[in-house]
Computed example of a mutant assay.
Amino acid sequence: MHEYDAIIAGASFAGLAAADSLEGDILLLERKEIGTRQTSACATFTSVLEELGCKSSILQEFDTLTMHIPEERKVELIEPISTFDYEKFCKTIERRIKVKNLKASVKGVAGDIVLTDEGNFSSQCILDCTGWRAVLATSIRQDYVDRRNLAFGLESEVDYTDDSLHFFFNAEIIRQGAAWIFPIGNKSRIGVASYAGKTRILPQLSGFIRTLGLELSKTHGGYIPFGLREPVVDNLFMVGDSAGMAPPTTSEGIRPAINFGRECAGIVQGIINGDKIVKDGLIEYRDIVNKSKNRYKWLLNMQTPVLDNIVPGTIKKAACNRIFSKIFQKMYLGV
Rank of each mutant, 00 (worst) to 15 (best):
S156R: 04
K326I: 01
N120F: 13
S82W: 13
Y223Q: 15
Q60P: 10
F84D: 09
P183G: 02
F152H: 08
I283M: 04
F84E: 11
I201F: 12
I173F: 01
S217A: 15
Q142Y: 12
T219S: 09
E23R: 14
T92K: 15
E118N: 15
V289D: 06
G197M: 15
M245N: 01
N101E: 11
L22D: 07
S40M: 00
P203T: 11
G24Q: 10
Q38T: 10
G108W: 03
L154C: 07
D308W: 09
L59H: 09
W298Q: 09
A9T: 04
M331F: 12
K107H: 08
V106S: 06
Y160W: 03
F62V: 05
R255M: 07
L216H: 13
I181K: 01
I254A: 04
W132D: 02
P247Y: 12
Y160A: 01
L136G: 02
G24E: 10
A137R: 04
E30P: 07
E50R: 06
V289R: 05
R200C: 13
I69M: 08
E30N: 12
G177A: 04
G10E: 14
P70E: 13
L212C: 02
K291N: 12
K187E: 01
A9V: 10
M245L: 11
L154M: 10
G131M: 00
K291E: 15
I323S: 05
N149H: 14
V268F: 02
G197K: 11
N235I: 02
E76I: 03
T314L: 11
V289F: 04
I323P: 00
H2G: 02
I81C: 13
N259A: 05
E94N: 03
A134T: 02
K100H: 06
S164I: 00
I8G: 04
F182V: 07
E3H: 10
L102Q: 08
A14N: 08
I272K: 00
K330W: 07
L102D: 02
F208R: 14
V289C: 06
T83A: 12
A257T: 01
T161G: 01
S56N: 13
C90N: 11
Q303N: 12
F152N: 04
I26Y: 03
L16Q: 06
L299W: 15
C42R: 06
G153T: 14
P312F: 06
R200K: 14
S12Y: 08
R286Q: 11
W132R: 05
H220C: 07
R200Q: 14
V145Y: 08
A178T: 07
